[in-house]
């Protein structure tokens, strides 16, 4: 079951570019990345695309297919009509290097801004003891493959380049949440989330959760719980009073 599929692929670099039309053979069971590879092999040998595992685990082949942020290797051709023209473009939020490859170093900069795990000072490596229920929440966030599709789709930076400095994006707010919920982490992550990583910019429209290929509930399990912790700290005098009365830190 093969057919000739119609594709529009963005070609260019930071000096300019546009969508180019191609007709490429599509076979049963293929994914969009297979088509891009066939396009490279048969018609556009200089087409740039970043990929690695072809199994949805390395997070390399993030792009946009028909305008929706997706992993090229996990987007089956069977979800499209045979007559449909499929548009493949690079992630919009990040600077373009060439064709489908973007410079995602914004994310590495933001990753470095999150202080690392800080265990209690009197606890040596090897002495960590914790129960499964205490680490379950953080473990969900460890499923992240760092494809940065959530960062790409978040309108806070996608539509407003000027917010990139103040806002770390859902991936790294989730990292802050992961550490904040870790039973052995002693750092104060709540003020950091609001003041240093721009949690207040998030208006919980859930696009990060919608595009996550690992189906992590980023908004419900990381961002909203962090917003609630910030509300505890900054906006809830009842909690403040309780902390004073019962001498909780």
């Amino acid at each position: 079951m093969s057919y000739q599929g119609k594709f529009r692929v963005w070609r260019g670099d930071d000096s300019g570019g546009g969508l180019e039309d191609f007709t490429v053979e599509v076979n049963e069971g293929e994914v969009v990345l297979d088509i891009i590879h066939r396009l490279q092999a048969t018609q556009a040998p200089d087409l740039a695309v970043r990929w690695n595992c072809k199994a949805g685990k390395c997070g390399s082949c993030s792009a946009e297919v028909n305008g929706r942020p997706r992993l090229l290797c996990m987007t089956r051709m069977s979800i499209f009509e045979e007559a449909e023209t499929i548009t493949v473009t690079p992630m919009r939020t990040f600077p373009i290097i060439r064709d489908l490859v973007t410079d995602v170093s914004f994310n590495y900069t933001k990753a470095r801004e999150v202080p690392s795990f800080q265990p209690p000072k009197d606890l040596a490596p090897g002495e960590y003891r914790m129960q499964q229920v205490d680490v379950e929440r953080s473990q969900e966030f460890r499923k992240c493959i760092e494809c940065f599709l959530c960062q790409n789709t978040c309108h806070v930076v996608r539509d407003h380049e000027e917010n990139k400095e103040a806002f770390s994006g859902p991936r790294f707010l989730m990292r802050v949440a992961e550490l904040e919920m870790h039973p052995l982490d002693t750092a104060d992550r709540v003020d950091q989330a609001q003041d240093d990583h721009g949690l207040g910019y998030c208006n919980i429209t859930k696009c990060c959760s919608e595009v996550c290929p690992e189906h992590i509930h980023i908004t419900d399990n990381a961002l909203i719980p962090m917003k609630e912790r910030v509300a505890d700290r900054k906006y809830d005098p009842i909690v403040w009073l309780g902390n004073k009365l019962f001498r909780r830190s």
Binding site: H155, H160, G198, T205
Partner: peptide, 19 residues
């Protein structure tokens, strides 16, 4: 329309969210 849907550009020139 902030945003109207995922990966659809919003019409606003500035955005400060819930800050």
């Amino acid at each position: 329309a902030s945003p109207p849907a995922c990966a659809v550009a919003e019409p606003h020139a500035k955005y400060t969210g819930e800050t």
